[in-house]
Design a protein around this nucleic acid. Structure first.
Lengths: 149, 149
DNA sequence: ACAGTTTATGCAACATTATTTCAAAAACTA
DNA sequence: TAGTTTTTGAAATAATGTTGCATAAACTGT
């Protein structure tokens, strides 16, 4: 993975810091997974992660994702398709409490899921129900696919 | 399945009508699956369907659910847990276009997912994006679990 | 910088969830 | 009711996710 040396010079300490902040040991796999998430702005599916990080065992990648979710680094984005996608958590997420109030947009053309962090999920008042959190996924055609058309 | 005869006297023709309306052949399996969905008000997961309709092959049940989704009889409800659930579509859904604008509520205590058909998903204005439909899943404690407490 | 401790990794096996193929059976059509 | 089309069940396969365990790597305190 020599071709990544330059990137690492710049960002390695940042990723390291993110891991430490969330009480995670600093390992090659975790750094590489983090790098993938920070370098793309959109959510990544397990399939994509497996494809892009072939060097690591599938099991290790699953465990990496799961510990990231446990510790508040990533959040799982449910998807009708079955296989979930994952997105970077806001600064505020910790192992104790995830708080994601942003909207997710899934493009039916390119298939990508964006975290629209500047749009928060509208509150619905449900008498009798006790709401802990909510998840809004909007389907349609994303900005770039719309432009490309 | 003799114990179902009474129900069938009352409802069989209704289910048959639903199938015909959606261009689906009338088969035992489809009738039984429909009956399950109409007799419970909440969404059903594949696991529950398999358990409650043991008489049919798992493959047949998968195919039944998939053709129901294709033809606009059921809609898939994404869920963080991985295994999806399914709910009855509104009268307006067809093979060409599903339109679900209602809120889904998942209870963290009993695990059930309700289709709150009287609550519609608030519209979010996303400049540049072309929205086809949206999906709001609210997590928390449902009415009955709240009361039972 | 090192020895001891804790945690992560890779591998193999396993578990769960979903799809494909194909012959036989059932549903439809006229 | 005969002919056509679709559905079903069974077996195989694929895709997705988890567990146990020995080894390797990361951390901790000195």
């Amino acid at each position: 993975m020599l071709h990544k040396l330059y990137i690492y010079e710049v960002k390695y300490s940042d990723y390291k810091h993110v891991l430490k902040k969330h009480n995670l040991r600093v390992t090659d796999c975790r750094i590489d997974v983090l790098e993938r998430f920070y370098s793309k702005k959109h959510a990544l599916s397990m399939k994509v992660i497996e494809t892009e990080l072939e060097g690591y065992d599938r099991v290790t990648l699953y465990r990496t994702i799961n510990s990231f979710i446990d510790k508040g680094v990533l959040h799982r984005i449910p998807d009708e398709s079955g296989s979930a996608s994952y997105g970077i958590c806001a600064e505020t997420c910790t192992a104790e409490k995830h708080s994601h109030n942003h909207v997710h947009f899934k493009c039916s053309r390119c298939g990508q899921i964006d975290c629209l962090s500047s749009y928060s999920v509208p509150v619905v008042d449900l008498p009798g129900y006790e709401i802990s959190d909510s998840n809004l996924i909007i389907n349609g055609v994303c900005k770039s696919c719309n432009h490309a058309n």
